[in-house]
Amino acid sequence: MSDNTDVLVADKLVRHFKTGKGQTVHAVNDVSLSIAPGETLALVGESGCGKSTLGRMIMGLDRPDSGAVHLLGRDLARMGNRDLHTARRSVQMIFQDPSASLDPRWTAEAIVREPLDNFRIGTSAERRDHVLQLLSKVGLRPDQAKRYPHELSGGQRQRLGIARALATRPRLVVADEPVSALDVSIRAQVINLLCDLRDEMKLSLLFISHDIGVVSHISNRIAVMYLGRIVEAGETAAVLNAPQHPYTVGLLESVPRPRPADRRQRAPLEGDPPSPINLPSGCAFRTRCPMAVDVCANVVPPLRPTAPGRFSACHRADDMTKKELLNV
């Protein structure tokens, strides 16, 4: 599912961690994905599914055990430190917790200026102007440039984080749960800002989130992760309206909707996700899956195309159209 024009192509990424006790955490198992210019791919899943580890590898902050991360055609996973530094200019990150991701001892201006200094973008005077432009672009006033993060509100801090991420004019931005730490009345502002800037700067966005509502709003395509693997991928509306993996179905069932009229009538998906240390044999979801059959325990289902642009890693993906199977 890649072609040469894609901004990012991740190919068969694997990342395992060793714990102190000599156990292996299977954080990311054989994940491939691609993002086209201007496209927003949402990475959806619950805590521990490996979405943040995947994000770190795509940022070049962590190297995969195997597999490749092609950013604009060059493999981050095999780059030397100098090349990696250069490559970082084209991929930037927006963090979940705006307070913790801003150095408390730096002013807003210094924070946004840091990437400009690092990549020697423009002269000193140009950098100053550029910083003010960026601040106004994200809706911060010039007089706020001299403020420290703790003197700004949560929403303003996240705006600052966005300004920093856009300073180098990156091609790809990895946004790791960028609104989940914000007050609900502030989220819409930040989501709109992110959408506007994405369209204006023709950014590609990897949007990591567990919030289906936000994802449905912001993304073109969606990849659902469960225990280190992508279990389903496709166009956002198609996946959300007609999921082809029972985990996606369970996830969508679990999302509370602000509509008292369609209150859930059925018991939700049961159990906790298994530990990524002791993965179940075969399909990792089979322990919670209402549709599991014998083959699920023996064979790891590959992510395979089910329709144009649609992929599912379920042995019974073709049965998924028969909705009644899920109502067990």
């Binding site: 913790a100 991701s101 150095d103």
Partner: peptide
């Protein structure tokens, strides 16, 4: 802390991260 990760991802060198952050 995330702000160190942030500094790495905006391309700050290791000496800069040590001395300035």
């Amino acid at each position: 802390l995330p702000f160190i990760t942030a500094a790495i991802s905006v391309g700050s060198s290791t000496p800069k991260i040590l001395l300035r952050h």
